[in-house]
Write a protein that binds this DNA or RNA. Structure first.
Lengths: 249, 249
DNA sequence: CGTGCTGTTGAGGACGATCAATGACGGTGG
DNA sequence: CCACCGTCATTGATCGTCCTCAACAGCACG
């Protein structure tokens, strides 16, 4: 199910690009003109898979997805969650051109935008800000991975708390519902579902989460405190130097 | 203790740059001419520290260093080991320009080469291959971090085995002595020194390590098998697309 | 009204941390 | 040459976190 979009860059994507320093409307339009929309991706489906070569860039327009990896023992390890505006499988798209390691799955119904790789590269020659934005996004992703390493060896409570903090920041909200299941968080935190559940109960005891079945943060301050959260690692947007990207052939 | 070098890019650095696709001798020379050498850094000293702004790029010429982070509880977490030819604190140098997160420490006596950031950026305008090489190195580093995340939730034996495999590949040897202490490996693997030691004894039982006090791999095959090691994540060198880097102001 | 997914609870056990002490080795100074 | 010291390696004992297995409850779906 695909269609062209005539309008400007769809919703959050434009927002994201602006955050990444793509401010000229000519740049935004160039991006938007190349994008094809694909809707109706069901929960559980693979969006960017280990299907060999990656022929296009993918942007999440709507829904929630995760960048995961299937462990040999059957366990699923989630590296990152993706929200509307995120580039999917970016590291592999940008870098290796094959997706041996990525496996982006839909956690809810999703729609995505796709851009042919070669066409985008053409366009980047005329709109270098776009290239820079992609690199910047890739580096922010790398930064998230590094932070995960740091958090990984803290006890489970802090790990879960930290994950929740990160999701709040990524979603751009202070408090409210995080559209993930306990299972998702468990897989992202490297915990068994059972233990994760006990952690969630602790968080409710602490008054950080509501008593609902879903994950609803009601005390952001306390959560950040528990997580020892320092969101600076997500704030790399403003810090990219004047380096730019171009194509040389 | 600083001095200029008139000769070509010092030893391993040239090798590394060539691996990263800098083949033109003009490019290599441009790099070499900017580099100043600093020798006599003692074990334990900080090479690239949290000293605010990063004014220059640093390359390890000789010795072994690690990219570590001091945990609040006093524990040291090692993200990566660095060998001659590696760029130090690359992520922060390239990207954030400040080193709030990096902390590169000498594990043995080291000497490094430094290049002024601004001078290098000037030079990259004329030698774009250099810029691309740096980005590529950064992405390879990111790839190592991601792999660490995967390995992190395997049991201790495999974790240690995987670390050892990685070091062998990085050192470019099949078997032999890895110039690290058990403590270093423990800090990199997120293990207590005591437990790490027990793992090392197991590896000796398996005939993977020699009975020496130092870490000496004598059966690479078995080690790779134990680690379920797939070194492809280190082989990103050949795969960077035609994207290049330039400076736009 | 089953069927399936998520969340919840209990009991037992494994992996690895911590504490504490000792051994091995290399360097330094007397 | 030997005594001393610091670092690294080793060993034993205890304890805590978190996993596993197993069962069940709530809720959404057809």
């Amino acid at each position: 199910m695909r269609q062209h979009v005539a309008m400007g860059v769809v919703g959050r994507v434009g927002q994201r690009l602006r955050t990444l320093g793509v401010t000229a409307s000519a740049d935004l339009e160039a991006f938007s003109k190349l994008m094809k929309v694909r809707v109706g991706i069901d929960r559980g489906q693979t969006i960017v898979g280990r299907t060999g070569l990656v022929k296009h860039f993918t942007v999440l327009l709507d829904g929630v997805a995760c960048f995961s990896m299937q462990h040999s023992d059957g366990g699923r390890q989630i590296h990152a969650f993706h929200y509307p505006g995120d580039f999917l499988g970016l590291h592999d798209s940008l870098f290796t051109r094959s997706a041996e390691f990525s496996d982006v799955q839909a956690l809810t119904s999703c729609s995505v935008g796709t851009i042919d790789r070669d066409e985008l590269e053409q366009e980047i020659q005329h709109h270098p800000a776009l290239g820079r934005a992609l690199w910047q996004a890739a580096m922010t992703e790398a930064s998230i991975f590094r932070q995960r390493l740091v958090v990984a060896r803290r006890p489970a409570l802090q790990r879960v708390a930290h994950l929740l903090c990160e999701q709040l920041v990524r979603l751009g909200i202070d408090e409210g519902v995080i559209p993930l299941s306990q299972i998702d968080i468990a897989d992202a935190g490297g915990l068994s579902v059972v233990h994760a559940n006990r952690i969630f109960q602790e968080l409710r005891q602490f008054g950080v989460l509501s008593k609902q079945r879903l994950i609803e943060v009601v005390d952001k301050e306390r959560l950040w405190e528990l997580a020892a959260f320092d969101g600076r690692y997500l704030d790399l947007c403003a810090s990219l130097s004047r380096w730019n990207l171009c194509i040389d052939d």
